[in-house]
């Protein structure tokens, strides 16, 4: 197998250039999908037979919850690649993930609470999904805190990479323990997104939202990655051309 593409991925100027070229290819489809899904979800989809129009929160809650988890796994994967192959660009990518992930964890929590109010009659219920999201938020905060606490970039990269890997191993265990805890105490759970019976006109906008948000994240990540690479490589000669271009 030809591994040159892999080695080129380790080269900051190459990644900087590629990321710049790729960004619009993710950003525009993301924008189109999200706008179409908004129309589909808010206008075309019929009200839910139980939750009325309240269920439409799913079109922003589910994509945020999905992003929060997906970004954490992306971060851990990038961190592992950076640690194993000593690839600086991968560390830069991991560093670019954390803040975006934390943002969408907060969004999923707040939209979950806003959804919970009409369904449970209260903003907060110790629902296993919400609880697990809350713990995920603390995992993000710990990661960001560790990064901010170590001044030397190379050391911050490696230490936070170990933390991200330990975190991703723990995420399923935490989820399991929280589900298990919930099953004992029998708190109500409304947010079941795995309803197989969801009709197509409800499901299609949801899937479009999920894909749209994923593409959106890739576009944001690419821009952040370029900033991070530029910041880290400011002493190298290729930055000269990139900064003035």
């Amino acid at each position: 197998m030809d591994w040159t593409w892999f080695h080129r991925l380790a080269s900051p100027p190459h990644v900087y250039r590629i990321a710049g070229t790729l960004t619009p290819w993710f950003a525009w489809p993301a924008g189109l999908l999200i706008v179409a899904a908004l129309y589909g979800g808010l206008v075309l989809a019929p009200p839910d037979y139980q939750q009325g129009d309240g269920f439409r929160i799913i079109y922003v809650h589910a994509p945020s919850a999905w992003l929060s988890l997906m970004i954490y796994s992306t971060m851990a994967t990038a961190a592992a690649i950076g640690l194993i192959w000593r690839m600086k660009v991968a560390h830069a990518a991991a560093a670019s993930c954390a803040a975006v992930g934390a943002w969408f964890t907060v969004v999923s929590l707040v939209t979950g609470m806003l959804w919970g109010k009409p369904m449970w009659g209260t903003y907060w219920v110790w629902d296993p999904r919400l609880t697990a999201q809350l713990i995920l938020l603390f995992l993000y905060l710990g990661y960001m805190g560790l990064r901010a606490g170590i001044e030397d970039t190379a050391r911050a990269d490696k230490a936070s990479a170990v933390l991200a890997i330990v975190g991703i191993v723990n995420v399923p265990i935490i989820r399991f323990s929280v589900e298990w805890w919930n099953s004992i105490h029998q708190a109500p759970s409304v947010m079941k997104m795995d309803r197989p019976s969801m009709p197509a006109d409800m499901l299609v906008p949801l899937l479009m939202m999920l894909v749209g948000f994923t593409l959106y994240f890739v576009a944001v990540l690419l821009v952040r990655l370029r900033a991070e690479i530029l910041r880290r490589e400011r002493a190298s000669s290729w930055v000269r051309e990139a900064a003035t271009a």
């Binding site: 713990i135 603390f138 995992l139 905060l141 710990g142 805190g145 560790l146 606490g149 170590i150 030397d152 050391r155 230490a159 170990v162 933390l163 330990v166 975190g167 723990n170 265990i173 935490i174 399991f176 323990s177 929280v178 298990w180 805890w181």
Partner: peptide
């Protein structure tokens, strides 16, 4: 992980406590 962090006590708790959730639950 917090060896290189000055006054890392609070950070250590922030890192460890979420990971300790399953231990606490069981």
């Amino acid at each position: 992980l917090t060896l290189g962090v000055k006054r890392g006590g609070v950070l250590l708790s922030l890192l460890t406590l979420p990971l300790a959730v399953p231990i606490l639950v069981f």
